[in-house]
Design a protein around this nucleic acid. Sequence first.
DNA 1: GTCGCTACTGACAAAAGTTGTCAGTACGTG
DNA 2: CACGTACTGACAACTTTTGTCAGTAGCGAC
Lengths: 230, 230
Amino acid sequence: MTRSERLLALLDLLRQSRRPITAEAISERLQISVRTVYRDIRSLQSQGAHIEGEAGIGYQMQPGFWLPPLMFSEQEIEALVLGMRWLKRNTDPELANSASSCMAKVLDALPAEVVDQVHHNTLLVGSRQNTDPQASHELRQAIRTESVIEFDYQDAQGALTTRRVWPFAMGYFSEATVLVAWCETRNANRHFRVDRMQNLIITAERYPTSKRLLAKQWRVEEGIPESWPI
Amino acid sequence: MTRSERLLALLDLLRQSRRPITAEAISERLQISVRTVYRDIRSLQSQGAHIEGEAGIGYQMQPGFWLPPLMFSEQEIEALVLGMRWLKRNTDPELANSASSCMAKVLDALPAEVVDQVHHNTLLVGSRQNTDPQASHELRQAIRTESVIEFDYQDAQGALTTRRVWPFAMGYFSEATVLVAWCETRNANRHFRVDRMQNLIITAERYPTSKRLLAKQWRVEEGIPESWPI
DNA sequence: GTCGCTACTGACAAAAGTTGTCAGTACGTG
DNA sequence: CACGTACTGACAACTTTTGTCAGTAGCGAC
């Protein structure tokens, strides 16, 4: 059994065992030395598995690595499919891809007839003209990492300015995709249509506050009640 | 990316792709040689994954057989939230409700730190004017049950006619919601804007074919390739 | 405090695994 | 037959993995 196979086996082992397992027990079970068990555990942890070890006790895996089976009603499935289709046709390839894999994960646990229903579901969505998918992707990335960005912007009057902003939200409208950001140049929150940006640069610089705070402040300014409903 | 990480990624990839995927496609996606793809596939198979390969076709995995899917990634959560938000603001209350309960179920399975991310997610969607929510809901119900429906319809020229149709699909566009149906009156497939319908009646009568067949035929007529992607 | 149990770390050299390349075979479809 | 694709074997360069050994550290029982 090679290491990579063993890691999968170890995941399975930890997933199934309810009580803590000692490294020594694992080492016997998998026919490897204790030292290697420690290394394997470390490797899984670095891949996102929540495995806790306590001296004198053993190892135990916390939930949150594997997605448990989710059950949905027919209507919920319909909603899910429709939402994912909208993403596929109205955002960017990266989000579309995430939508697909979401759907695949959900479907994994569902009985075959439901999967079949999904593939024959006839709720459809239209698509709008795409804004530059690359930019859209990069901007979302920048929001995630709270990075300062720079770009040239052509406003509604056609005037071109260079901006340096702290992005914290994106709005998907049927006419355009809009970035919401704190503008260093103007010292205020501003909205920017993605299709009017040019020469976008994601700097390595992280902005000196958090997107949460920025968003909260923006909501107050705009009179948007509370954090966003789902 | 180490081999063991790659194997998990490969599982995810196979789970996600509904259609068979060729070894070459995988090799590009994972940035490895084709030979290594064959080795990786073999490795997963020997551990119990149900992966089938056919010459000239590609690989396909039978879902739900081995390890459960990995937890949603940050990007997948983002996609999910955005999709559900679109539903909330652009369809009807029934779908919006389904979206909410979907999200609630998903959140229930998520570790706390991810739940927090969801509540502070800043991808937003615009909303369009609603078509009559009641009608929208009833029409979807009619599609589900394959019921014959009747209504008065005002076409683009303003002429009013009474129709009896077999509904099988709905399209959500930014300008309007459109019902796609086989029209008994015209003996052909027709599209109807929901906002131009009046006096809608869902009859108790079930139409003498299936929505799948109707949809298939419509797709052929319209030159839409294959069943709908997610 | 000491003991027993166990998690965990660093270092190192031998052993094993991994990879891309190349040259082939096999299979089903058109 | 040609084509697309699954699949195999061999090999050498390259990386990773492994066990061993020598330690440190936390916790509960006595």
